[in-house]
Design a protein around this nucleic acid. Structure first.
Lengths: 211, 211
DNA sequence: GCTTTTCGGTAACAAATGTTACATACAGAA
DNA sequence: TTCTGTATGTAACATTTGTTACCGAAAAGC
């Protein structure tokens, strides 16, 4: 918790003191569910380390990836839910080890008045989430699956910092809201074009991957 | 402007006075553009009468409908843009006659501190827009075009209060980000199934439309 | 009246995606 | 090792959506 000051939050010292005092440091590991459909949300997560993925599910069970949250980001939808005592529309899952600071919901509004840096942070978060959702809509509505797959792989590369992506075709299909066979087919084409190499549970992006 | 008090905003009297003083009443008519791609936004629109549609466009020219704004609603994305001096990612167009109150951007933040009812309104707006965007994503990602078309027609019916919808197949295709031929095809199927009647620039929804 | 433009209907085809089914390969457990 | 569950490869086919082309009807302009 002490290294909070070093993180890129840019909060004023008094606010950092309050966060240290009222915030609760929590650890999650691969696959842990931080927020879930239909559950009330009583705290707002600030992501300190690792990555969360935020998903939306349909009645029949299909899921689609909305966006990732990583360092110093937060889920604005959690904020909205906290304020209005609403149930969550989305699910957030830890990708690997994740540390968050949980801010209790009753502080959110108080800090908004007390700390300009908190207000700015919240407003910036809202804007970023809107922008991510718009990107997501753009991707689904306007791009074909092969482009979306490539974008997905790039995003995974960016977040992990590695060009070896650990995931099964099933998982990828889930997050793109399509079927495993389709993903396998498109990945095989990418491999044949010399963009990637395929292994079990692993995809290696080659140098000329983006072109 | 004087009938502002009667509208469902639920603002405190002092805030209403400020809105009357600093807000500017503006009229738009069918097709007028209130916000546009790449333009800076210097005021935030409160919709008093009529309906705005909010769209997102792709590079190649295709557009897709994100959601409608009608009575007492506002565009949270405009709010974000105002605060951060950002360019708009979306376009907002008047559907028929529209009255808005334009709130100058320098008041937004000030009122946030001064008026709890303003803060609540803004926060509620953020939550509503998120929810609309999620509905939009759900629709595009999980539903086939025929379902989306039906949902689109229902929404039009709800907003206009009439089961006669004035629109060409071209317009509908644009807002669903597909082509005219596809829309005509699906509409004809609906007509053959006794759900609707088709005329030039007009679609009449029949009684057993939803089933 | 005529001409032009826009709108809608339809066919024929192309492309993208989804589905089912089955084979094989691999990893870990027993 | 063998067994077993999971992951992947691939074919064949169905469905959905997109595209092009052409037609005639209705509205708008002249």
């Amino acid at each position: 918790m002490d290294n909070l000051v070093n993180l890129g939050f840019d909060f004023e010292p008094a606010l950092i003191e309050e966060i240290k005092h009222f915030g609760e440091l929590k650890h999650f590991k691969e696959g842990d569910i931080i927020m879930d459909y239909g559950k009330y949300i009583r705290m707002m997560p600030l992501v300190i380390k690792g990555t969360l993925k935020v998903l939306k599910k349909e009645e029949n069970g299909k899921e689609i990836l909305l966006y990732y949250l990583s360092n110093n980001e937060t889920c604005s939808m959690a904020y909205s839910c906290c304020l209005e005592e609403k149930k969550s529309d989305v699910r957030a899952i830890a990708e690997g080890d994740v540390d968050i600071i949980a801010i209790p919901h009753n502080k959110l509004d108080e800090w908004l008045h007390k700390f300009p840096s908190w207000k700015n942070y919240i407003m910036r978060s809202f804007a970023e989430r809107f922008s991510e959702l718009l990107k997501s809509i753009e991707s689904i509505a306007f791009h074909k699956l092969d482009d979306r797959l490539i974008a997905y792989l790039k995003e995974k590369q960016r977040l992990s910092g590695s060009s070896v992506i650990k995931a099964s075709h099933y998982q990828i299909a889930d997050e793109l809201a399509t079927s495993r066979v389709v993903v396998s087919r498109l990945l095989k084409i990418l491999e044949n074009n010399g963009k990637i190499l395929l292994y079990r549970n692993e995809i290696k992006l080659l140098r000329d991957f983006d072109s």
